[in-house]
Each structure stands twice: as C-alpha cells, then as structure tokens.
C-alpha cells in the first residue's frame, strides 16, 4: 500500500473549520461523518446472480422497496432507483468491497469523495429540515429506515433516518456541503445548534 494515508485528508466541512461545541440542550446536533466510503451499485434486483453477489459481499441484499435503506454491520444500503443503490461504509472499507463487487461482475463505481454525510439529530431536527425540505417527515410517513432523494434549500440531498432521536444522515455533494452546513446552522439557530467533531 502506498503511503497516501499520511497525506492530509481534507473534507469540505473541515474547510469551514467550525469549532465543536454548543449548548447541551441544543435543539439539533450536527456532525460531519468524515471520509465515509460510498459505492454506487447498478444492477437488476431480480437477477439472482446480482443479488447473490451483493448479499455475499455487502452482507445484505439491496432493498427493492423504493425510499428505503437497510443497515447491516455498520454499512447502509440506500435505494436510489429501481436499479441503483448507494452503499455507505465506514472509512477505509470501500476499497475491499469495491474489488469484491467488481470481481463479481457488478457495475460498481467508487463515489466516496463525490459527497459527504452530515448527521443531523435532536428533538428539533424535523422542524429544521422542514424549513427547506418539502418531504413529509412526520413519523407516520418517514421513520427509521426511510430514505429519500430530494432537495434541502437549494441543494440536492439524499437523506435517510437512522434513529428516533430523530437522527438523519444527509448525503450532499462535496461542493454543496459547506452551503448545507451553513444552512443547517442558520435554520437551527432558533433552537440552539451543537456541533460535534467529525
């Protein structure tokens, strides 16, 4: 392995250099989930070979229900389209997974650095998102395991609910991440914003 691990890794939110902190009883907490692996899979979910390879390598079959994601072993597999999924991995796990999937003949693309993930959580998270997102996030229509691609403010975002705090992961293209981060701090300002280190 080359020594690129020694090179500085810079994420779009590092660049903003927001110091961690904020009130304990903040309405929302935001944190960049730095340098996650992201792989884009394309394939026919009704093709057993495809399903088997994904099952074997990722550990779970891709969800075929739209607007859903499944969590398995620190991975999240998010439905993006009828033949398209995003696998989000902990930092560093993408390379091995990419090789395994590609070896199995799956059309897979490394998009780890195309976007970053912002974790938004807290009792007012829903109200903050509602200021820029037209999705109905009420628990009756959006809950843990729900996922959607939509817009937040002026930025295309993929979001999925990870817990009932409630917590959401917001996937956003790197070049829009700073804008979204700023937007979240603005929209959450009224409720108190806590920033956690990535």
């Amino acid at each position: 392995m080359a020594d690129h691990g020694a090179q500085a890794c810079v994420t779009p939110i590092d660049v903003l250099a927001t110091p961690p902190g904020g009130p304990r009883d903040a309405g929302i907490t935001i944190r960049e989930r730095r340098l996650l692996g992201k792989l884009l899979l394309r394939g026919d979910p009704h093709d057993t070979d495809f399903n088997d390879i994904v099952q074997r390598t990722v550990g779970t079959a891709p969800p075929i229900t739209p607007n859903r994601c499944v969590f398995h072993d620190a991975l999240a597999v998010i439905w993006l389209g009828p033949d398209e999924w995003l696998v989000v991995t902990p930092p560093g796990r993408e390379d091995g997974l990419l090789d395994a999937l590609a070896a199995g003949g799956v059309a897979v693309t490394d998009v780890s650095d195309q976007s970053t993930v912002i974790r938004l959580s807290g009792p007012r998270a829903r109200e903050v998102l509602a200021q820029g997102c037209a999705l109905d996030l009420h628990p009756r229509s959006f809950s843990v395991g729900s996922a959607a691609q939509s817009r937040i403010g002026r930025v295309r975002t993929t979001l999925w609910q990870v817990d009932d705090r409630p917590g959401y992961d917001l996937l956003v293209s790197c070049s829009f991440a700073a804008w979204l981060w700023t937007w979240l701090t603005d929209a959450g300002g009224e409720f108190g914003v806590r920033v956690e280190a990535g």
């Binding site: 037209a134 999705l135 939509s150 817009r151």
Partner: peptide
C-alpha cells in the same frame, strides 16, 4: 412511479 408523490420542483 418509484418515489411516490413529490413537489413538481423535483
């Protein structure tokens, strides 16, 4: 047909 009802802005 896949994602359900959404605003036309999408």
């Amino acid at each position: 047909p896949w994602c359900g009802p959404r605003d036309d802005a999408e």
